[in-house]
């Protein structure tokens, strides 16, 4: 099977109501890696991920996947900043992507049950009553169940306690080792240091810096990223 990557982004700009939220961004997302996207609130991280996933359409510029764009999204998954939990049981939530993907029903159920065991939830519980951490784990399992080639995660561990964070990071490391290309935003610098292969730093809708994790944390190039890492307010 041909990979959907690399993704070539050329001069892409996202606008809403006349306001430029992102860009122009020119960038290539290569076939493998674990990219952490950082940047202050409102710098365009969510917009950037959504644009790559096709949820925002660039007004200018282009996004070119290695295969046809419509097929490309079938090999991606997205975990939203606020998890979207369907009004169904945990099992039905997690099996849903397989069912809309026309997988065999029984097989889908088995696979979903495996995942539920793995993340320690109860299959026939109403997913709407889950706690914040459980919701995130559900959303991540639901994203990983289709074995996506590219996984986008938007602040998947914000507001979670240490234990939930570790469980989620373990899931992500495992997915990465199984070959999933991960692109994830976080505000947690410690987490970025634990997970990142490379870091992308956004400020005011622009990619300010992109470097391998070691370089980014030890030899930060841009003044904005240095200020951010110090905990200063980035202007």
């Amino acid at each position: 099977m041909t990979s959907i990557l690399p993704l070539k982004i050329t001069e892409a700009v996202v606008r809403k109501r006349g306001k430029r939220l992102l860009g122009p961004v020119t960038h290539v997302i290569e076939a493998s890696g674990f990219t952490i996207v950082m940047g202050p609130n409102g710098s365009g991280k969510t917009t950037f991920l959504r644009m790559m996933h096709g949820l925002e359409t660039p007004r200018q510029g282009s996004l070119v996947w290695n295969i046809d764009e419509r097929d490309a999204r079938k090999h991606q998954a997205f975990v939203f900043q606020t998890p979207i939990i369907m009004r169904r049981t945990v099992l039905q939530n997690i099996a849903y992507p397989l069912l809309v993907g026309r997988h065999d029903k029984k097989q889908a159920r088995e696979t979903a049950l495996d995942w539920i065991g793995k993340i320690g939830l109860v299959a026939d519980r109403n997913a709407q009553v889950l706690s914040g951490g459980e919701r995130q784990k559900l959303a991540i399992a639901r994203a990983l169940i289709v074995q996506p080639e590219v996984l986008f995660l938007d602040e998947p561990t914000t507001n979670l306690d240490g234990r939930s964070i570790r469980e989620i990071e373990d899931l992500l490391r495992e997915a990465f080792q199984n070959g999933t290309r991960i692109i994830m935003t976080t505000h947690d610098i410690g987490q970025a240091q634990r997970l990142a292969g490379d870091v992308m730093f956004l400020n005011r809708g622009q990619i300010c810096e992109r470097a391998p994790a070691d370089d980014f944390f030890n030899a930060t190039a841009s003044e904005e990223a240095r200020a951010f890492l110090r905990g200063d307010i980035v202007e």
Binding site: H53, L55, K74, A77, I84, M86, R87, V100, G101
Partner: peptide, 28 residues
Amino acid sequence: DLWTEYHDLLISLNTSRRQRMRTLIWDA
């Protein structure tokens, strides 16, 4: 209302128009 809530997820999962309507009718 439910569509506003589910929109991003159902788009992200590549659901067909028909699947969307069925999912929304069932969940509502």
